[in-house]
Amino acid sequence: MKKSKLPMSMDQIESYFKDNLKDSIRDFKKEEIKKGLKQRPMKLIWFTVDRKSFRRAVKLLSKIQIPHLSVTSGSDIGDHVELIYHFAVNYGYRGDEVSVSIKVHLPKDDLTIPTITDMVPGAITTEREKQEFLGITVKGIPDSRRLWLDEDFPKDRYPWRWDETGMEKMSRYVHDMDEAANTPTVKNLRTRGDDDE
């Protein structure tokens, strides 16, 4: 199906993606939250797409309008990492903007995702951030340096992961600080729970 004229309605966006992506799309969810005295709705769309069709989904989106990527959020959900690309379409039309959040699941044994910076150059900041905070690899990223974290931050620790590569062993709580408090050496504080165990 071809795209309709702007602004596209939620149903149009739904059929546009469903017709083009067919089976690789699942958990499609439309939301309208009515706000204020005039009950003007806030429109949101969520869906999950297979990794191999992800670039196609972004391509379809960029045919509607130059896509606005707000940010990518990511969470560690047990056996996979879920990335959510928060896009917005129909900007420039009063009350018609729709937040399109595209979810991609990356299995823990293969944490890679293709870059979208060729289609959305503004995605570079958020792609670099996801690499250092979630330990994923963005294939084809034009600049893979760290962005926020320092060079001396451990290479195999990722702040947003809940598994063994996460930060739990690096953070200290007051109630199990006794040992460190009794022998307050620099070495004790630095390596606790990290290399010595």
Binding site: K35, G36, R40, A88, G92, G95, D96, E97
Partner: peptide, 8 residues
């Protein structure tokens, strides 16, 4: 574009 609070 996407009114929140009372902007609608």
């Amino acid at each position: 574009d996407q009114p929140y609070a009372a902007y609608g």
